[in-house]
């Protein structure tokens, strides 16, 4: 008899079926699959214009085992608030109401409604799957596109010169109970965060880093690898911010150079050595800021900070559980 692994934490149930319309290697499809494993069947989704408006399938099909309400681009958060209030008024209590939006629908056109919902602390879970551009419309830059990236509206010779908008800090500033980042290459961490968020009353915000092979100009087989590298290069830190207290969930002992992440993707192919070095410095500066925030917010809250020893893992720690100590 085969040995049963000790730490199987991912629920076996599936709430997304095959036949969906995602591209090969779609990070957003995997992100949805894992999020639903955490949420379970007592869940409703509201989805604004984004890749998932298409992925779910055309009328009369749907690929999800939970209801999916389609709504206008800027409207994810407000529709979730309406659904949440409506479900409660018709006697359906305890339903997970999830707004599921891309980075454009979150950081750009949807930020007003999201900010409104968060300020009111309405009881919704807002998940942004972040693939760093308007992928559904054909790779146009969003405010979540990182510095240095090519998109169809930031051509290679005039690549994006402004940094990625920091939605995490914006959401933290709303003083909501839970803000987190996750990455679809680390399912245990992602599922743990969504599970935690669903049991918290109020507005919860999770931003899931999700690769887009066509938009990132890379082969579909790199979809998971690229996102793992994003975490291990510290380009995409895995964080939790609970009532304003920052925790970095994964601190690799040895960091992979940013260049390893960039070279997989055609959207960064135009960058010179100097520009890559510049990006490395930006990443390190941001990491230092996060370490400072983690330390200072723990101190202010009188909470002990988990030691480095609990979180360390070797470089590229493929498949290693996130060091949530």
């Amino acid at each position: 008899m085969a040995e049963v692994p000790k730490k199987l934490t991912i629920p076996a149930e599936e709430y997304i079926c095959s036949g969906h319309l995602a591209c090969q290697g779609c990070g957003a499809a995997l992100a949805m699959r894992y999020a639903l494993k955490a949420l379970g069947p007592n869940t409703v989704y509201t989805v604004p214009a984004c890749c998932w408006s298409v992925i779910d399938g055309p009328f009369p099909y749907t690929t999800l085992g939970v209801p999916l309400f389609h709504i206008a681009f800027e409207a994810a958060a407000a529709s979730a608030c309406g659904l949440s209030a409506g479900l409660e008024m018709v006697g359906k209590k305890g339903v997970n109401v999830v707004a599921w939006a891309g980075d454009g629908g979150t950081a750009d056109i949807g930020i007003q409604a999201l900010s409104g919902a968060a300020e009111r602390n309405d009881n919704i879970l807002y998940i942004c799957y972040d693939n760093e551009a308007y992928m559904n419309t054909g790779v146009q830059r969003s405010s979540s596109t990182p510095w240095g990236a090519w998109t169809t509206t930031t051509p290679a010779r005039h690549f994006k010169k402004r940094p990625k908008k920091n939605l995490v800090d914006i959401m933290v500033a709303h003083q909501i109970p839970y803000v987190a980042t996750a990455a679809m290459a680390f399912p245990e961490d992602l599922i743990r965060k969504v599970s935690k968020a669903k049991d918290i009353e109020g507005t919860k915000y999770i931003q899931i880093f999700a690769s887009c092979p066509p938009g990132w100009r890379m082969a579909p087989e790199y979809a998971v690898k690229a996102v793992r590298l994003a975490v291990n290069t510290r380009i995409w830190p895995q964080l939790e911010v609970e009532h304003g207290v920052y925790t970095i969930n994964r601190k690799p002992r040895k960091y992979t150079p940013v260049a390893e992440y960039l070279k997989l993707q055609g959207r960064f192919a135009h960058l010179t050595e100097e520009q890559i070095e510049q990006m490395q410095e930006m990443v390190e500066r941001e990491w230092d800021r996060l370490l400072f925030l983690e330390k200072s917010t723990h101190e202010m809250a009188g909470l002990p900070l988990a030691g480095e020893k609990a979180a360390a893992s070797k470089e590229g720690g493929a498949g290693a559980a996130a060091g949530q100590g």
């Binding site: 509201t46 309400f69 709504i71 206008a72 409207a75 958060a77 407000a78 529709s79 979730a80 608030c81 309406g82 659904l83 949440s84 209030a85 409506g86 479900l87 008024m89 018709v90 359906k92 007003q112 409604a113 409104g116």
Partner: peptide
Amino acid sequence: SAMVACIGASAAGA
């Protein structure tokens, strides 16, 4: 957002 919230609530049956 006022109309969108009404849309959500109405879609839930309220």
